[in-house]
Structures are given as structure tokens and as C-alpha cells.
Design a protein around this nucleic acid. Structure first.
Length: 480
RNA sequence: CGGGCCGUGGCGCAGCCUGGCUAGCGCGCUUGCUUGGGGUGCAAGAGGUCCCGAGUUCAAAUCUCGGCGGCCCGACCA
């Protein structure tokens, strides 16, 4: 990949990304298992914070968590024709268990629509059973040809929501409600701007009527699908015989949805904010929000400084880096690499002045603040950083989106990879949802990411559009 | 699965072409002293199936063949 003109990286972006993941102590390749990775405590803590944000929103909208088996009878996948066709190439299949060849192999779930469809058929009889709103936090496995840490690993962690409704309208409401939740978490929590939209027919989930996605732009201008929400129609309802008796006593098939986000979000987070010095974590997701590095020379200084550091740390909820035998400089670099939003310096000079020096990870700006009210200063800095990261990322998205008036102009822009034209850009144009369009941009290794539901430059709004008209705005970009 | 690069203490690498000393270096780690406002310095130390297998040879990290694994670029995909 040629170095993108819109990123200041000195190194190749892929290499840079790898370095940040490793140096930020987020994860490492599993080595012993092809295409898998080990998520280390730093990375997992970010995932836990994301889980908490998402799960709270799911609960608040009436969803309940449940758990379904890892192994799925192979025949289940065959029940939905498009679904099996879409997933067959990347399935891992268990054929031997207990030392014997199995009569019917199991597949390790690549996603759980089929087994959940099976149970929906047992659990749903009446309109009174609907809507059924379930979510599962789980691992899934897809034998991808090419893997990249966090962005595409063979095994990954995710949440998958599965719901059943009595009408298509209600199902579609659910699909868009979830898409809004995803966008809200991406924007407000991750500080990662996204474009909400409907996928083209060529790009939709195998077995869905329509798929909706949030698409983010990484620092090199490549798109990243950060979450999907699917309108499954009655496809799985019919495949698994999920029927209910309506108020009129008629048997009907349910309308289903499914939706998910994965540990891929962490990859997106890194590629959105981090810099050459290492990880940059938005305050709302940072496991450690602030650290105090005490500075002292003599023993009597040491006592006074540490005492003050502990006091301030308690007040602001910071961590004190009181490791002996490490110079302050080494500690600054350490926390910088790990992406801690605010690092405070506290030495004899500050002590004498009643101050403490605050340093923000994103801007690198140092500011001495009074020890009285330091909690408020830190909170303000964290808040400013959260907003600053979001604003910077949103501006990058805006600045690197170009408009085109026709598919021909889209092609012309993609052909020209200069910074002003197609180099690391989102290209917006009115396009028909036609596989021919997908095929044409694919010539340039780009794809129709989605057809936006709201005007990207109006900021995050609620999804209001249902159904795709013949020609509508589309985002075309190269993607991970 | 195609093309390219690679596999040597925890990490990053040199050595391989042209086979031969006790397999080196940097970082990290341990111990002690020192230092401390952006990667202190010194000293001593621990740590190795040179990816695996077969072959050639008196002798293989090095040469040959086969495998496995990783990264980057493609195709596939969250």
C-alpha cells in the first residue's frame, strides 16, 4: 500500500497499526492458533468498557442477554439457502468427537441465526410472545483467508442481537434503533464518526432482506465497517418454522432482525485516534484515565511528593506511578505509549507552588493547575479530550469526503489516487443499488460501503429513511 | 490459495551467499550502587530444541528437499 497522503505516518500504515497494538500492550498474535490473537489485559479492559456501554443501552431498550451453543448442527445452516452459501467457505467443522466419527458434523458458529431460529420456533407460539428481544455475548469463528489483529481474526468476540417481531414495520424499527445505538456509542463513547446507511444488495448479510451498517474512516482514509444491523425479513422464520398465532387467530411467520459489533471496534478505535507515539484512548474508554508521576531527588522530597501524589490521586481517581528505579522520563513514555489520556507531573517545584502539571495525551499540551480543584481540572481535560478527538476525527472524515455526480465520475476519482482525488477518500455520489455499480467500483478495489440514511455533514441524527429508492446517495471507498 | 519477505534467549535483529572457534548484538529481565522536570549511568548475572522433519557432509543456524508458522500485497470477509 502506498503511503496515504492524508496520514502523517512515517511508516507504512499497516506496520504502524501493528506496532501500536503491540506497544500499547493490547494483543498479540496467538501463534499456536492460526489467525487468532490473544487479547491482553489492556485490550480486554477497553472491550469491557465497550461492553458496558453497549449492554446498558440494550437493556434500556428491553433486550435480555442469553447464551446459545458454540456448536451448531451442520444441517441448521443448510436450512437457509443464501446463508449457507455465504458462510460455507469460512466454516470450521467438527467431524470427530469422543473418538468417533460423528453422524452429523457440527460447525463452530460463525454467527448464531440458525440455532437461535431453531429455539425461537420452540419458544414462540403467540403474538403475546412477541417481540422477543435477545442478545448474546459470545465468541464466533470464521476461517478467513487473511487476518489482521482486531480487524479480522479467525476467532473474535462480539455481541449478536436476535429479535423476532410480529410485523415488518416493528422489525425495521428495531433494526434502525440498534443502528442508532451503534452510531451513538461510536460517536459519543469511541469518538469515532460513522456514516449510517443501508448496504447494497451485493454487500448485504447472507440471508438478510437488507443490511444496515455504520462505516468509519480510518486515518489512512480506508473505510471500516464498524457495526451491522440486519432486517432478516421472514427468511429465517420460514426456514426454522417460527410461527405465531396473531390476534385474529391466523398463523404467521415472525419478522426477525440480527445485529452485531465485535472486537473489531478496538481496531477501529486504534486506527482512528492513535499516533506515532502509541495508543491514544478516548477518556470514556480508557481503563486508566489519569496517572501521577511523582518527581523527587532527595529522601525528604520523596516523602512530601508521594504524600501529595497520593492525596491528589485519591481526589481525582488517578493512579500513582511510584515505581522506584525508573526515571520520570521513562514513566512518561510508558504511559504515553499505553494511551492514558491525562498524565500529571508532581515535583518539589509544583509542591512549593501548590500546583500540579497536567498533560493531555492527544494534544501533548502541558498545563500547570492549582492543586485545589485539581479533580475539576482533570475532569475538564478528559472532557475536552473526548470532544477534541471526536471533532478531529469528524473533521478528517469531512475533509476526506469528495462528491461525484455520476458513476463515471466516481470511477474517474478512484482512478486518480492523488491526495485531492481518490487517495484515501470517501466518494459520495447518487448511485442505484445495482450489482453493476458494485462491480464497477470493484475494478478500483473499492466498494459501495453503504447508502447513507442521514446527511453525514449534519452530524449524527436519527435514522428516518426506510426502504431504498432507486438512486440514492452512496459512499464508495476502499475498505478493510 | 497466488506473489513478495521472513522464522536465531521475552522482544527486535546480525550471522547464512562462501558449512568449521565457546552462536553474537541491542532492548527488556534479575541483583547492587547511582540517577531522577521526557527513554540516567556503571558493574555483575539469568535466559538458546538457531521453526519442524529428512537428506548431503568428518562437520549444518548456514547447503538441498519437504512440511509448519508469521507478516505485507491480492482474491474472500465483521
Amino acid at each position: 500500500m502506498p503511503e496515504s497522503p492524508i496520514t502523517p505516518r512515517s511508516k507504512d500504515f499497516a506496520q504502524w497499526y501493528q506496532d501500536v497494538v503491540l506497544q500499547g500492550d493490547m494483543a498479540e498474535p496467538a501463534e499456536v492458533v492460526k489467525g487468532c490473537m490473544v487479547i491482553k489485559p489492556n485490550g480486554y479492559a477497553v472491550w469491557e468498557n465497550l461492553q458496558r456501554e453497549l449492554d446498558g443501552r440494550f437493556k434500556a431498550t428491553g433486550h435480555q442477554n442469553a447464551y446459545f451453543p458454540l456448536l451448531i448442527p451442520q444441517s441448521f445452516l443448510r436450512r437457509e439457502a443464501e446463508h449457507v452459501e455465504g458462510f460455507a467457505p469460512e466454516l470450521a467443522v467438527v467431524t470427530v468427537a469422543g473418538g468417533k466419527e460423528l453422524e452429523e458434523p457440527y460447525v463452530i458458529r460463525p454467527t448464531s441465526e440458525t440455532i437461535i431460529g431453531h429455539f425461537f420456533s420452540k419458544w414462540i407460539q403467540s403474538w403475546r410472545d412477541l417481540p422477543m428481544l435477545l442478545n448474546q455475548w459470545a465468541n464466533v469463528l470464521r476461517w478467513e483467508l487473511r487476518t489482521r489483529m482486531f480487524l479480522r481474526t479467525t476467532e473474535f468476540l462480539w455481541q449478536e442481537g436476535h429479535t423476532a417481531h410480529s410485523t415488518h414495520e416493528e422489525a425495521l424499527e428495531e433494526v434502525l434503533r440498534i443502528l442508532d445505538i451503534y452510531a451513538e456509542v461510536a460517536e459519543d463513547v469511541m469518538a469515532m464518526p460513522v456514516v449510517k446507511g443501508v448496504k447494497s444488495q451485493a454487500e448485504k448479510f447472507a440471508g438478510a432482506l437488507k443490511s444496515y451498517s455504520i462505516e468509519a474512516m480510518m486515518q489512512n482514509g480506508l473505510a471500516l465497517q464498524a457495526g451491522t444491523s440486519h432486517d432478516l425479513g421472514q427468511n429465517f422464520g420460514k426456514a426454522f418454522g417460527v410461527q405465531f398465532q396473531n390476534k385474529e387467530g391466523q398463523l404467521e411467520y415472525v419478522w426477525q432482525t440480527s445485529w452485531g459489533v465485535s472486537t473489531r471496534l478496538i481496531g477501529g478505535l486504534i486506527m482512528t485516534h492513535s499516533d506515532d507515539k502509541g495508543l491514544v484512548l478516548p477518556p470514556r474508554l480508557a481503563p486508566v484515565k489519569s496517572v501521577i508521576v511523582p518527581i523527587y531527588r532527595k529522601d525528604e522530597e520523596r516523602g512530601a511528593v508521594l504524600e501529595a501524589a497520593q492525596r491528589i490521586a485519591k481526589e481525582v481517581g488517578a493512579k500513582v506511578d511510584d515505581r522506584e528505579g525508573q526515571s520520570p522520563g521513562a514513566k512518561f513514555f510508558h504511559w504515553e505509549r499505553l494511551g492514558v489520556p491525562v498524565v500529571m507531573e508532581l515535583g518539589p517545584r509544583d509542591l512549593a507552588a501548590g500546583k500540579v502539571v497536567l498533560k493531555r495525551r492527544d494534544t501533548g499540551a502541558k498545563e500547570p493547575v492549582s492543586q485545589d480543584g485539581v479533580a475539576a481540572s482533570v475532569a475538564a481535560a478528559l472532557d475536552a479530550m473526548q470532544k477534541g478527538l471526536h471533532a478531529a476525527a469528524r473533521e478528517r472524515l469531512r475533509a476526506n469526503t469528495v462528491l461525484a455526480n455520476s458513476i463515471e465520475e466516481v470511477e474517474s476519482i478512484l482512478r486518480d489516487s492523488s491526495a485531492e482525488r481518490g487517495g484515501g477518500k470517501f466518494v459520495m455520489a447518487y448511485l442505484a443499488d445495482d450489482p453493476a455499480c458494485d462491480a464497477r467500483v470493484k475494478e478500483f478495489k473499492a466498494s459501495v460501503r453503504n447508502h447513507p440514511l442521514v446527511d453525514e455533514f449534519d452530524g449524527p441524527g436519527k435514522c428516518i429513511v426506510t426502504g431504498a429508492p432507486v438512486a440514492r446517495r452512496a459512499v464508495v471507498a476502499k475498505a478493510y
